[in-house]
Design a protein around this nucleic acid. Structure first.
Lengths: 163, 163
DNA sequence: GATGATTTGCTGCATTGCAACAATTAGTTT
DNA sequence: AAACTAATTGTTGCAATGCAGCAAATCATC
C-alpha cells in the first residue's frame, strides 16, 4: 500500500494510533538495524511529533514530553532531534523553525517536498522524482552540485479550502 | 556573454559597482512607481546586501550600516528588511536565517530557486518555469493550493568546485 | 502650520539554539 | 563482577534571532 501513491496529507479520519504505532515500530527496526539507540528521550520526542502530526517547535516538544513535573532542557530536545533527523525519522521545516515526524520510509537522500497549510498547520509530504530531477538539472545547468534541497510550499490544503 | 541565460551566480569578476548601482536604480524606480518610500535606512540595508552579494544575517547588517558610532537597533533593520522583502527587492533565505538582495527584476510571485554554496556562501538565483510548474502540479495533485514556494538547495558552486 | 499617516527610536523581552563540562548510563573486555 | 571505554543525558549559562509597544520625529496634504 505504500510506494505508488503515498498519502500526501494524513486524512483527518485516518487511524492515528495505528499510524503512530507503525512509525514507532519502523523507527525501532531502523535503529536496531543500524545499531543506533532509540533511547527513552529520543522515543518520547518522536512520539510527540508523531502524535501531533503537525510541525512542533523545540519548545513545544519540551511542553509535551515533560508532563510529570520535570521537563527536559532545550538542549536535550535538540540533541534528540539531531539524532532523529540524522536517521531520517524527523524533518526540519526551515521556514517555520519547527520539526515534523516523517511518516514515509524513504532514504535520507530522497527528495521531499513539504506542503504546509497556512490555516491548519498540517504538513503534506510529497516525494516526487520529477521535481527532484528538474531541480537537479537546473542546478547542474548553473554549474552547481546540489546536496540537500529544501522545498517548502505554503498554501491551503484541500481540507481547509472546504472540499 | 550574459543575457539569455541570466547570470545565476554573479561571477567573481563582474562589474560589481555597476551591478549595485543598477539594482539601486531599479529599486528607486520601483518604489517611485508604487509611491513607496525608499528611505535612507531602507536604502542602506539594501546597499549593504547588494555590496556583500552574499546572504547576511540581520545582525551583520547592523554592523555594516552603523559605521559611524551609532548603530541601528535590530528592530530598525528588521523593519527595513520587511519593507524590502514586501517589495521584492530582498529575499529571505530560510535555511540560513539570512537575507540577500535580489538582483533579478522579477515579480514577487515569480518562482525562484536559491542555490547556496556551502563553501563560499555565494547564492545563485534561478527562475525556472519548469520547476515552478512541476511543483505546482504536484501540489495540486495533493489538493493543495500553493502560495509561496521556498526552494533552497545547498551544494557546491562551480567556482568552488574548481572549474 | 495644522492634521493625519508613515517611519524611526527606544526599551525591553520572547524565542530559538547551542557550547562546555560534569554526571550518568550502556556496552565491552578482562 | 570489576574495569574500562563510548555514548548519552544533566546542568549551567549564554549567544543569536526576532519582535512588541509606545514615544518621537518626519512626511504629505490641505
Amino acid at each position: 500500500m505504500r510506494g505508488m501513491a503515498p498519502s500526501v496529507f494524513p486524512t483527518p479520519d485516518h487511524d492515528h494510533g495505528r499510524c503512530t504505532a507503525d512509525a514507532l515500530a519502523h523507527a525501532e527496526a531502523l535503529c536496531e538495524a543500524r545499531s543506533q539507540r532509540l533511547t527513552p528521550i529520543r522515543r518520547q520526542v518522536l512520539e510527540a511529533l508523531l502524535t501531533s502530526h503537525k510541525p512542533l517547535g523545540a519548545y513545544e516538544i519540551i511542553e509535551l514530553t515533560g508532563q510529570e513535573g520535570a521537563r527536559p532542557a532545550p538542549i536535550t530536545i535538540y540533541r534528540a532531534l539531531d539524532f532523529l533527523i540524522e536517521n531520517g525519522l524527523v524533518h526540519r521545516i526551515e521556514s517555520r523553525n519547527a520539526f515534523i515526524a516523517c511518516i514515509h520510509n524513504h532514504a535520507i537522500s530522497d527528495f521531499v517536498v513539504f506542503l504546509i497549510c497556512e490555516r491548519c498547520g498540517a504538513v503534506g509530504e510529497v516525494s516526487s522524482r520529477a521535481i527532484g530531477e528538474t531541480l537537479s538539472n537546473a542546478a547542474k545547468a548553473a554549474g552547481f552540485t546540489p546536496k540537500a534541497p529544501v522545498v517548502e510550499v505554503s498554501g491551503i490544503c484541500a481540507h481547509c479550502r472546504g472540499v
